[in-house]
């Protein structure tokens, strides 16, 4: 067995894979944040709570309705997305035209309510969600053992990001969406129902978060606060990448996940803080973010 700078390859590739998985969540969550920010001009602080709701929806579907992983992967984002539509329709809509900071404060309040409510009902010990039988086990790649489910999480996230990118950059709906981001009044004058577009965009961004939550459920335990700390890291990812480009936020997400994984191997104590340090450096060198436009 060869060693790389004193690190056994099993540990190195294992952490790299974990980094890729975290990066997948960063990518999907920051993608949703960027979509919502583009059209609503608010930062959705509830995003972490909605990721957690996705995981809980999967758990509830399994334990109350007996629906397994695959139906949950489809249904949970729809259910959570519908709650997002309601939030936009009845709460966020009232803040149109105000300082975007109020949107941040409102969604922060919603996050506290949702996380508090789940904590009150389910406690903080965390619930187990089984790996779907079709993805149990793993394959030996020669240099490392790859659990199938973890490979699937990375793959599914990449596909979700690519599909989102294709819809926005390559379809007529996406073109309308981009136009509405640039100039909502003009697009509305062309007869497009912009308020509905805004509502659906928020719902879709939220559904993406819930999708990530379902993917995460078998890996991490289903826990009321699972999104709370994650969302702060995702904010740092968004600051580093800038919210101007979809592929930019996806690349930043995966890249930072890998950097974090590598830090875990070479300097474990710094793995919690490395992304924040990178954020500070990026702010010094390129304040608008790696892929961002100056604001």
């Amino acid at each position: 067995m060869f060693e790389l700078i004193g690190i056994p390859p099993q540990a190195l590739f294992g952490q790299l894979l974990l980094g890729l998985i975290n990066g997948a969540f960063y990518a999907v969550l920051s993608l949703g944040l960027a979509l919502i920010f583009g059209l609503l001009n608010i930062i959705n602080f509830t995003h972490g709570a909605q990721y957690m709701m996705g995981a809980f929806a999967a758990w509830l579907l399994l334990n109350l309705a007996g629906l397994g992983y695959w139906p949950a992967l489809l249904l949970a984002p729809v259910i959570v997305g519908v709650t997002g539509v309601l939030i936009e329709r009845f709460l966020l809509k009232r803040l149109r035209g105000l300082d975007p900071l109020y949107g941040l404060l409102l969604t922060f309040g919603l996050a506290l309510i949702v996380e508090g409510a789940f904590r009150q009902v389910y406690g903080v010990s965390g619930l187990a969600y089984p790996v779907p039988p079709s993805l149990a086990g793993g394959v030996n790649l020669g240099f490392m053992f790859l659990p199938l489910y973890r490979g699937w999480v990375v793959l599914a996230s990449i596909v979700a990001c690519l599909v989102t990118w294709a819809v926005i950059e390559r379809t007529r709906l996406g073109a309308t969406l981009r136009a509405a981001t640039e100039n909502p009044a003009l697009v509305q004058a062309f007869g497009v129902n912009v308020p509905r577009l805004v509502t659906l965009t928020y719902g879709f961004g939220v559904a993406l978060a819930a999708f990530a939550g379902v993917l995460a459920a078998p890996i991490y335990s289903v826990h009321p606060l699972m999104g709370a700390n994650l969302i702060i890291v995702v904010f740092a990812v968004v600051v580093i990448g800038g919210m101007g480009s979809i592929l930019g936020s996806v690349l930043t997400g995966f890249g930072l996940g890998v950097v974090e994984g590598l830090t875990k191997v070479f300097w474990p104590e710094a793995s919690n803080t490395v992304i924040f340090v990178i954020m500070a450096i990026v702010l010094l060198i390129k304040p608008a973010g790696l892929f961002g436009r100056a604001t």
Binding site: L91, L95, L105, L106, L112, I113, E115, G116, R119, Q120
Partner: peptide, 18 residues
């Protein structure tokens, strides 16, 4: 009352902002 503090604080946030 445990998590109720968080819930109430969240509600106050929402009510004040709206």
């Amino acid at each position: 009352l445990g998590a109720w503090v968080t819930i109430v604080q969240g509600v106050v946030f929402v009510v004040v902002v709206l």
